[in-house]
Amino acid sequence: MITIHFIAADGSEQTVPGKPGQSLMQAAEKARHPGIAADCGGSLTCATCHVKVAPEWASRLPEASNDEMAMLEFTASPREATSRLSCQIELTAELDGLVVHLPTAQY
Rank of each mutant, 00 (worst) to 15 (best):
T92L: 02
A27Q: 11
L91T: 08
A47W: 00
M71C: 05
L85H: 04
A31D: 12
I89E: 01
A8D: 14
I4F: 13
E80Y: 05
I36P: 05
E63C: 01
G21H: 08
D67G: 06
I89N: 04
P17G: 12
I4V: 15
V16N: 10
T92G: 09
C87G: 08
N66F: 03
S77N: 08
D39I: 04
C46L: 05
A47H: 02
Q106E: 12
D67K: 01
R32I: 00
A28K: 08
T92P: 02
T15I: 14
A38M: 05
R60W: 02
E63M: 07
G97I: 06
S12M: 02
I4P: 12
S77C: 11
N66V: 08
P62Q: 01
L91D: 05
D39Y: 01
A9L: 04
K19V: 13
M69K: 14
A64W: 02
G35C: 11
P20N: 06
T15S: 15
E56Y: 03
A54M: 04
E63H: 12
V16T: 13
Q14P: 01
Q88C: 13
A38G: 07
G42I: 04
T82I: 11
H33G: 02
S59I: 00
S83W: 07
A28W: 06
L72T: 08
L91I: 12
A38H: 01
G18I: 04
E56S: 10
L44Y: 06
A28D: 07
C49Y: 00
A105I: 05
A31P: 11
P17K: 12
I36N: 03
L44N: 13
E80L: 15
T82V: 11
G21Y: 14
E68D: 08
E68A: 04
C87R: 02
M69S: 13
Q14H: 10
I2P: 15
G21A: 11
A9Q: 13
T92N: 04
V100I: 13
K52C: 03
I7L: 08
A47M: 03
L102N: 09
K19P: 00
A64Q: 13
H33V: 03
I36F: 00
T104P: 00
L98I: 06
P20V: 06
C49I: 13
A105R: 10
L98A: 07
Q14G: 01
P34S: 11
K19A: 13
E80K: 14
S65R: 01
K52G: 01
D67W: 01
L61E: 09
H101D: 14
Y107R: 02
L102I: 10
M25G: 05
Q26I: 00
P62E: 04
T104L: 07
T3E: 15
V51C: 14
A81R: 12
F6L: 06
R79Q: 14
C49D: 15
C46Y: 00
W57S: 11
S12N: 13
V16H: 14
E13F: 00
G97A: 04
A58P: 02
E13N: 07
A37Q: 12
R84K: 09
C87M: 05
M69W: 00
L72Y: 03
A28Q: 09
P55V: 09
A93P: 15
A64G: 14
P34T: 09
I36V: 15
G42R: 01
P78F: 06
L72P: 07
A31Y: 06
G97R: 08
G35T: 13
R60T: 06
L61V: 09
R84I: 03
F6R: 02
T82K: 07
A8P: 00
